[in-house]
């Protein structure tokens, strides 16, 4: 449901410059990496878990390591997803006050929010690098398959760094353009009510017509 928002990019007024375009290129690459990691993890997790059930039912033999690998997938999805969710400004926040503001004040608050969140993300990235290095030195492995845990937990520094970058990019975009951007690529707006504008299609509309 969020991908279609990417097209809003075109409406950006002409104050975009080479700097923003270069950032945009980097951003696309990072986005594609995040996206594929998440897709592969969710699909692989579904496949592994259902394979495990089927194995148990048919052959009295599940897939060894299903538990720990599933847990690893959740860790990767969660932390890499932090970056991806930041990219689509999906992180949950309480916007009651923010919603009341408008114009410069609103934009200023948004920049404060982005910079503050970016700082926290980079701090966590730094702390989790520490943790990953320590685990690598101590050689912690998983119980069933002996997978080195530091490799899995790389998802933390990666995810936090990517999220930090997203919040910085959003700041940069808001500094150079007139409109307010909730993330680097998404301009701020809410959907209209369906009754007011039936043509403004939403992903779920196809299902609705089928009824």
């Amino acid at each position: 449901m969020s991908q279609q928002q990417l097209s809003e990019d075109k409406k950006t007024p002409g104050r975009d410059n080479g700097f923003i375009r270069a950032l945009g290129g980097l951003n696309l690459v990072l986005g594609a990496i995040e996206k594929w990691i998440i897709i592969i993890c969710v699909l692989a997790m579904a496949l592994l878990m259902s394979g495990h059930v089927v194995g148990n039912l048919l052959f009295q033999q599940g897939i060894p390591g299903t538990y720990e690998v599933t847990e690893m997938f959740i860790v990767v999805i969660t932390f890499v997803g932090v970056g991806y969710a930041a990219r689509h400004s999906r992180h949950i926040s309480m916007t009651a006050i923010y919603d009341q503001l408008s114009g410069r004040l609103r934009k200023a608050l948004l920049i404060v929010l982005c910079l503050g969140t970016a700082a926290l993300m980079f701090y966590f990235a730094y702390k989790s690098v520490d943790y990953v290095v320590t685990l690598q030195e101590r050689g912690r492995t998983s119980a069933a398959l002996g997978i080195p845990m530091w490799m899995v937990y790389l998802a933390l520094p990666i995810g936090f760094t990517l999220a930090g970058i997203q919040y910085l990019l959003t700041t940069a975009r808001n500094l150079v353009s007139q409109d307010i951007y909730r993330s680097f690529t998404e301009k701020e707006e809410y959907d209209e009510l369906p009754e007011e504008d039936p043509d403004l299609s939403h992903t779920d509309d196809d299902n609705r017509r089928d009824a």
């Binding site: 009295q60 720990e68 119980a143 069933a144």
Partner: peptide
């Protein structure tokens, strides 16, 4: 063939 629950651990398995 008893389906006995063990921790997910290669040695116990």
């Amino acid at each position: 063939n008893l389906q006995i629950r063990v921790m997910d651990n290669s040695l116990l398995r």
